[in-house]
């Protein structure tokens, strides 16, 4: 658990989001409008419930936190003005920090592959990201049929663009790594 204690979870969550999960009174309006509700095993309000009940492990291992698309429909409709999208971001961040095995490895690997390009080059490098993601996920055949047309349309560049101020970007990433220790 990388120097992090379970009892700190709630405190850390409140520190990241500047809001107390107790604010949620479980009306379920968020889940009613959630676009990924049909694909998730637990509706988003249940993940809040886990945290309210101190079941932090259940929250951090829920596939729902990774399926959340960040659309913020929940946040904008919440009668309690609880920012659920921000809550999901924070639970995910803590799950990574606690070294919890992700219940949705593919999504996590995708985000890691995307961020790796930003860290290395300063901008998104789609080809590098796709290669990196495929190596991690071992999902080699997905979308290969799209590759030729995407190249010929000029939508996928072969080489990355290198940002000059890369040192600044590396520093930001280093800090984000520190936070997780």
């Amino acid at each position: 658990m990388k120097n992090l204690k379970a009892k700190d979870f709630k405190q850390k969550l409140i520190a990241i989001t500047s809001q107390d999960p107790a604010q949620c009174y479980q009306c379920g309006k968020c889940s009613a409008g959630c676009p990924v509700r049909d694909f998730a095993e637990a509706p988003p309000n249940r993940v809040v419930r886990y945290v309210q009940l101190g079941l932090y492990d259940k929250a951090m291992t829920s596939p729902t936190i990774w399926l959340c698309a960040g659309c913020q429909t929940c946040t904008s409709r919440c009668p309690q003005e609880f920012d659920l999208a921000k809550f999901m971001d924070a639970v995910r961040e803590l799950a990574i920090a606690y070294g919890v095995k992700s219940a949705d490895k593919k999504t996590q690997e995708f985000h890691e592959a995307f961020l790796k390009q930003i860290e290395n080059f300063g901008r998104a490098y789609e080809l590098g990201m796709l290669i990196d993601y495929k190596l991690k996920s071992k999902d080699f055949f997905q979308d290969v049929d799209l590759a030729p047309s995407t190249f010929s349309k000029g939508k996928l560049s072969l080489l990355p663009h290198n940002v000059k101020g890369k040192q600044q970007i590396k520093k930001i990433f280093k800090e984000s790594g520190e936070v997780k220790k």
Partner: peptide, 14 residues
């Protein structure tokens, strides 16, 4: 440089 898009906010607040 990149704004971090979805991948940044889903994994790290900073």
């Amino acid at each position: 440089s990149c704004c971090g898009a979805t991948s940044a906010h889903v994994t790290s607040h900073i």
